[in-house]
């Protein structure tokens, strides 16, 4: 899986991303800097979801819960305990992992759409519980006080380079872990469970353990992204972090890029996030909702034309017709499209 070429690509990408803010006329405090930061954040979120849903095949619509717990972890540390976000981050990640295991252990018995709807229901339950739970700010949410700039508070009000580098660190961590898993024994277990749970079990894979540990890892990483989101937006409230719409972002970005592929989440985020941010900024004269209408249209077209996402397109381009039989097949496909 980890060929020399893909390793070169990976390190080159990280180096280029790291060098970007230090170049003359780098990102500074521009809108493009904001978009780049968001791409890295949403790519990390999508990749964390990809672990359980892409590699392991358990499509979850409940990741907003774990994302939200992470966001509340950081915000509670800063706002309620008047302390540093760094104490809230591991607490949030651990809480998310525990909650994810408690929810998933019974829900993994459900199949197909029953599992999907059960995960929707958990998002609604958590959303409404956090709405009425005064300790976490209820429906008003938690607003950050004014903090000193710097890594200590993980907060910058002037130049946003700090957030960009923080997002890059998050991105490197999440993608690095997935890269490690892909070639590790665990990665093979995950894919074995996805391809056929009974077969995997008959070969001695403990599928329950594999699914639960993948879910816990996925939830903890989603919580880290949530903590970053809270720090970046300076506030959290339930509709912002624990909504079905947030859950769907995890799903849609990964699916658009390519479910169960390493680069898919990054590609999906690199297309959807700029689209969303720039249409919101430049098409606002057309009235509200235009950005989300375009978003919806792209999802429909992707699902109809290439449900395997951008990675699916890349693969079909790479596979040049070598044998006459293969080229005939492609011709037939094209005719079918007409």
């Amino acid at each position: 899986m980890k060929s020399k070429r893909s390793s070169t690509l990976w390190y080159a990408f990280l180096l280029a991303a790291l060098a970007l803010p230090f170049l003359p006329g780098g990102i500074g405090n521009t809108f493009h800097g904001h978009v780049l930061t968001m791409i890295l954040l949403y790519a990390s979120m999508a990749q964390s979801w990809n672990i359980i849903s892409g590699y392991c095949g358990q499509i979850s619509f409940g990741h907003a819960v774990f994302f939200g717990i992470g966001a509340y972890g950081a915000a509670l540390a800063v706002v309620t305990f008047d302390s540093l976000p760094w104490y809230g981050v591991p607490a949030g990640a651990a809480a998310a992992a525990i909650v994810s295991v408690l929810i998933s252990a019974p829900c993994f018995r459900l199949k197909g759409h029953y599992f999907a709807i059960a995960t929707f229901a958990t998002v609604e339950i958590f959303n409404r519980l956090f709405m009425i739970w005064d300790w976490v700010g209820g429906a008003i949410g938690l607003d950050y006080p004014i903090l000193e700039d710097g890594w200590r508070n993980f907060s910058w009000s002037g130049t946003k380079n700090g957030y960009y580098l923080g997002a890059l660190a998050l991105f490197t961590l999440v993608f690095g872990i997935v890269r490690r898993i892909e070639s590790h024994r665990m990665g093979y277990y995950l894919r074995a469970v996805r391809e056929g749970q009974e077969t995997a079990e008959s070969l001695g894979v403990n599928s329950t353990f594999v699914k639960l540990s993948a879910m816990a890892l996925s939830a903890a990483l989603a919580a880290l992204c949530g903590a970053f989101f809270a720090q970046y937006n300076y506030r959290v409230d339930p509709p912002m972090v624990m909504s079905l719409d947030m859950s769907m972002k995890f799903v849609l970005i990964t699916i658009l890029g390519g479910l169960g592929t390493f680069w898919g989440p990054l590609l999906g985020a690199a297309i959807l996030i700029p689209l969303q941010e720039y249409t919101r900024a430049y098409l606002s004269h057309l009235g509200s909702g235009v950005d989300l209408m375009i978003f919806g249209l792209i999802i429909i077209v992707t699902m109809i034309k290439q449900p395997r996402g951008i990675m699916g397109i890349v693969h079909s381009l790479r596979k040049k017709p070598e044998t006459p039989a293969a080229s005939e097949e492609i011709c037939e496909d094209r005719e079918g499209e007409r």
Binding site: H113, A116, M248, V251, L252, I255, L286, G287, S288, G289, V290, L292, M293, F295, G296, L297, I298, I299, I300, M303, I304
Partner: peptide, 17 residues
Amino acid sequence: LLATFGLSMLLKNFCMN
């Protein structure tokens, strides 16, 4: 399911607009 989710976004935001 995801394609109809896209449709729901389209319809909802069209009516919003």
